[in-house]
Design a protein around this nucleic acid. Structure first.
Lengths: 215, 215
DNA sequence: TTTCAAGAGTTACTTACGGTAACAGGAGTC
DNA sequence: GACTCCTGTTACCGTAAGTAACTCTTGAAA
């Protein structure tokens, strides 16, 4: 009994330490971008490199641990919007908006999670670094595919179609959000409306221009 | 006159050399992935590092030059499909298919252009490197937005909507293509059909499942 | 013909970063 | 008291980006 409790205490102790290290890492990554060095992170935590390596294996491990944290938070929010008991179109709008609010309110975290390149000063580290967008986007795509599959009646090849749509819609949301966050050409509400219009078939329904070639 | 000709000859000479270096770089990048070292590239070209730096400034410059090459080739193909004098739906299908054929036939080039991480052996270079997807995707999005704007009558805020749709559709194509290329869950034709169905408003039109909650 | 300018090329170096021994306390446990 | 485990250190290795300083060749111009 006592030994079990002891093990428990030790476990929580190392886990707490790990959390502290992750928080230090996060501060530095938010300050220096994904190119932050292990030395810098260790210094911020008040220790030296080898401890980081003992906790996270390698730099990828540390970054993965950081990414998992934020990814889980984002996914929880999206799941809630996706499961809301409202009309389909409202649900789509709510989900898009949830995602956009997330990237709008914490752009640094977003850049870390999604954006590989063009960080900070281009003279740094030669070219670029960091990047984990692919895993996150794939997770999002699979989640959405599952929701689509279990909600919609897509006929014989519905399984396949649901997955294509899931990844496609996530990609649309991601690319549009990335561009919007960079250029801010319109309000969030307008962006959501435009995207929902697109998903609601307006591309097929809208007329050709009078003056264009118009096929 | 003679001096002008001289300058011309010198210019073409250095440009030819630059092209040769880029071709060597391409061979190595295709062999070693985006983590290819400048030393390896120089060796492949039969020279040493400083020459590469004189030609391209830094590693980013070299990679950018490589990316521009392929990006231009891809864009030319897409523009042709986008401008074909056929019905709108056929044009959309042709454009999607053109993109998918490109990434299917030269996946290594695609990975280099788009994909930052998960290359090769994960133990290399600590974490990951390379990446320029953002510039390419942004260019594609802007191109598509222009086509949409000049072809379709989108009403008062059509300018804005065209840009949102351009980036959104490109993102959809990219994400779906990336996932498809990795998992190959269906034929290219089926993928094109599913994506076109999505863009044609099937998400709005399709019925709820009989057994689901069905909002 | 000599001279000059410029490009191609080299060796050898610096700097920085990821990652790894090897070692030194300190706190609980048998 | 010896054992073990965790935390922490210093000092190092390998590799890769990027630079400085020098040489060689070539082609034009005086």
């Amino acid at each position: 009994m006592e030994s079990t409790q002891q093990d428990g205490r030790r476990q929580t102790s190392t886990e707490r330490r790990r959390r502290e290290l992750l928080e230090a890492a996060e501060r530095i990554v938010l300050r220096d971008g994904p190119g932050a060095s292990m030395n810098a992170i260790a210094a911020e935590a008040g220790i030296t490199k080898p401890i980081l390596y003992r906790h996270f294996g390698d730099k990828g491990g540390l970054y993965r641990a950081l990414a998992v944290r934020h990814t889980n938070a984002l996914l929880a929010g999206l799941r809630a919007a996706l499961d809301a008991p409202v009309l389909r179109r409202d649900r789509v709008e709510a989900t898009l908006d949830t995602y956009l609010v997330a990237i709008e309110t914490r752009p640094q975290v977003y850049r870390f999670l999604m954006h590989p390149a063009d960080e900070e000063n281009p003279a740094e580290s030669g070219f670029d670094v960091g990047r984990h967008s692919a895993p996150l986007l794939r997770r999002l795509g699979e989640e959405l595919a599952e929701v689509i599959r279990e909600r919609l009646d897509l006929g014989p090849d519905g399984e396949e179609k649901a997955r294509v749509w899931g990844h496609g819609i996530v990609g649309m949301m991601h690319a549009a959000g990335d561009w919007w966050l960079r250029e801010r050409p319109c309000s969030r509400e307008q962006l959501v409306q435009h995207l929902t219009d697109l998903l609601w078939g307006q591309l097929a329904a809208v007329k050709d221009r009078a003056d264009g070639p118009g096929f």
